[in-house]
């Protein structure tokens, strides 16, 4: 079945959602990401949704769940690239994605993750920062 690939870049996991999110694909992504965070020890998860034409309550809940699960596993999730029409619709739907950090684009999202790594005394690589 369809799976969304997860890339590891330094201490972050990067996911770009390029497909129309089927409910099962969303559930699989949630499970795959949880497994990958533990296996890789990643401290940040960047989810790019710039290709998503809609975020309904199911997809919104999946993003919120991923953020909560990541936090419990000591990683921070940043959702980036939301289209303006999607943001307007989400808020009107009643879903403001509480607890989900967002950034305008992937570059700013990575900057947020790097800030967290720096605060933890880690570099963008895996190991602790050099003295």
């Amino acid at each position: 079945m369809e799976r969304i690939p997860i890339l590891k870049i330094g201490a972050a996991l990067v996911v770009t959602i390029q497909v129309d999110m089927h409910d099962r694909v969303a559930m699989t992504l949630q499970e795959d990401l949880s497994t990958s965070i533990v296996a890789s020890g990643a401290k940040g998860v960047l989810i790019d949704i710039s290709a998503l034409e809609i975020v309904d309550s199911f997809i919104g809940r999946t993003l919120a769940n991923i953020a909560s699960i990541s936090r419990v596993l000591d990683a921070e999730t940043v959702v980036v690239g939301m289209r303006p029409a999607v943001a307007i619709t989400l808020v009107e739907l009643g879903l403001a994605l509480p607890g989900v950090r967002t950034a305008l684009n992937a570059e700013r999202g990575m900057a947020l993750i790097r800030q967290r790594l720096a605060a933890l005394g880690l570099t963008d690589g895996d190991g602790p920062a050099e003295a």
Binding site: E53, I54, V55, D56, R83, P84, A85, V86, I88, T89, E92, L93
Partner: peptide
Amino acid sequence: VDQTKIVT
């Protein structure tokens, strides 16, 4: 925006 709302 209207497309996105009705599709959602």
